[in-house]
Every structure is written in structure tokens, then in C-alpha cells.
Nucleic acid binder design. Sequence first.
DNA 1: TTAGTAACCAAGCAAGCGCTAGTGTAAATG
DNA 2: CATTTACACTAGCGCTTGCTTGGTTACTAA
Lengths: 190, 190
Amino acid sequence: MNVMNASPRRKELTRLAAQLFVQEGFDRTTVRMLAQEMGIKSGSLFHHFKDKQEILAAVIEEGTQNALSIAKAALKTCPDSAEARLHAMARAHLETLFADRNAHVVALFEWRRLDPAASAHLSHLRDAYEAMWVDVIDDALAAGLIHGDRFLVSRFILGALNWTVRWYDPNGSRTPDDLADELVAMIMSR
Amino acid sequence: MNVMNASPRRKELTRLAAQLFVQEGFDRTTVRMLAQEMGIKSGSLFHHFKDKQEILAAVIEEGTQNALSIAKAALKTCPDSAEARLHAMARAHLETLFADRNAHVVALFEWRRLDPAASAHLSHLRDAYEAMWVDVIDDALAAGLIHGDRFLVSRFILGALNWTVRWYDPNGSRTPDDLADELVAMIMSR
DNA sequence: TTAGTAACCAAGCAAGCGCTAGTGTAAATG
DNA sequence: CATTTACACTAGCGCTTGCTTGGTTACTAA
């Protein structure tokens, strides 16, 4: 087995696993299905991953790391106003949501399948990401851009954004940036 | 077997099944777990339901029917203004979401596990419910209460509302009505 | 040449799965 | 009284599951 390394092979296998987990759900995806998709036999899978759980954790970690670095980059390169930061954060969220769609869908809807150890580790990553959101929303509230309870407002916004994976069609006429702009426009007091 | 009847016994079993499906997820809930929770042996389960799939369909149908009748009642008894109807619809949505929380969580997150026949049948119910929403939102747009694309606005609102099942604590200080009011306030142009 | 290592495979185990067959029993129905 | 219906039981079939075992191959480096 290949403890905790990030070999290119393992990365590719993780990407394929994410796709299958989205298509079938984690529980219905068998190690034999995973192996076939990867072009190997089911036994060989356990050379790369300790067990099925570890594949799930790898998928979610990958997605969450990407979300973090995309959000950081977006905030670094955007104007320093509350409004620009709110826009940037919403755009970054949708950008990573659809660039790494499979990984994020798994993170959003299969999180409960993580064993406690993996869940604890990944919770820290997710908390770091959500802290960035709360920060931006606090600024927007202080600047009078939006009104309401900071806790409820951030939950509503993240809910509206995360739910897009259930209906958004990347091949349609709207870009993720369009969605972000429309959402921010909807909640901003004018 | 007890084809398609709604005996009180079957209703109670459906309620217990919903709870287990939420706790464990549909795939990880075995017929033996279901039977134990119901105080019978696993074989006896198939006297009440044709197969495991039918239990899932029964859970989702129950929840969706309740949502429909609660929303209809809310719109019938509320003042006939666009604003009052929007409020009523949001409140009704959260009311049924937490009154029949288990059934709705299953409907939201285990829908894919339905076989095509059951899915087709239940889709009609769900579409009827969503049509009520679109109607109310069109009125709100026409009245100038909110602005934006009718499709996007309704998706964002339903996303924000549905996502509450992931974070809302019924034992906290906020009532579902508080949430509904805060969400409507957030999206209304003032 | 030799040694080490990453990648893979064929075979299969133990456990658990949904579901069926056949039976028993008590109450309701003719 | 005879029959049907509703509900529960026991026993287990046939199959799939995640994972293990014991070994082979290809490549790299000393």
C-alpha cells in the first residue's frame, strides 16, 4: 500500500472515483466498479488505497483544498471593498463548485459516510473555508450592503449557492459568474 | 402483501422507515434493521411492502403530499397580496420541512434511489408543488417586491430553504417562521 | 548482476445482502 | 360452522460485498 502519498497515479484514480461516487453514490459504488473504471482489477485497488473509506476521504480532501486556494486567490486579487469581496467570494465558490464538481458533490452529499477520524481531519479544512465566508459577510453587513442576522444570512447564501449543483446546467447559456452576480444582486439592499 | 393500501400499520412503519433512512441513508439501511426497529422479523416486512424500494417511495410520497396540502392551506387562508403570499409560502415550506423532517430529508437526498416507475409518479407530485412556488414568485416579481430572473430567483430561494435541513436546530431559539421572515426580508428590495 | 519497489493479477474468503417459500394463528366474514 | 384475511414466524437461497492472500511483471538503481 501507498500510505498517504500523492502520486500522479493516485490523483488520477481519485478523480475517477469522484465521478463514480457522483453517478452511483458512495454506497452503491463497489470496489469492482472502481477498479474497472480505472482499468485494473479490484485487488489492485488496495495497493493505492488502504480501504474504500480512504478513497472517499481523498476525493473530499482534494475538492476542499481546491476550494480554499481558489477563494484565497480571489480575495487577494480583488479590490478591497466589501462589495467587491462579496462578489469575488460568490464567484469563487461557484467557480470551484463546477470546476471540481464531482469532488464537491461528493463532499456535500456523502460527507456522512466518512469515518470519524477522516471526518475530524476534513472538518478543519471545511471550517477554514467557511471562516473566510463569515469574514466577508461580516464586512458586507458592516458596510450596509446587506442586512440581517450574520448567521442566518451566511447560511442562506451558502445554501442557495450549494444547491446550484442540483439544477445548474454548465452547457446552458448562463455562466457561473452570471449566477454569482444575480445572487448578490438579489440579496443586496438597493 | 398489502398492495397500495394505507393501513394505519403501514403508515406507522413508513414513519419508522423514514427515521432510519435519515439516520443511516437508504443504501445502508438493511431490511433487517428496518424490521428490528418495527419489532418484527425481516421476512414479515414483505407482507406490508412489495420490496425495499416501495418503502422508500411510500416515505417520499407521504412527505410530498403533506407539503402540498400545507402549502395549499396556507395560500387559501392568507391575504391576497403578493407579499403576504410570498411570506405564507416560505413559512409553509419550512413548516412542513420540520414537521415531516425525516420524510423530506429522504425526498431531498435519496430521490435518486427511486426506481424509474416510482420516480415518474412522484415527479408529478413534486412538480405540482414547485408550480405553486413559481406562481407566487411570478406575482412577487410583477409586484416589484423582488427583482431578477424568475428561474434563478426561485432556484435560489428553494435552495436556501431546503439547505436549512442541514443546519437548523429545532431546539434553538429560532422558530421556522423566524427563518422564513428573515429570508423574505433578505431578498426583498426596500 | 542483484536488489528493491511500484504496479498489478487470479482466486477466493467471510460476512452480509434482499428476498422467497412455506407455515402458524387469531380475528373477521360468509 | 367453514372460509378468508391480516399478520407474523422460521429457515435459508443465491448473490454481492469489501478486502486478503500469495504471487508475477516491469522498471530503476547500485
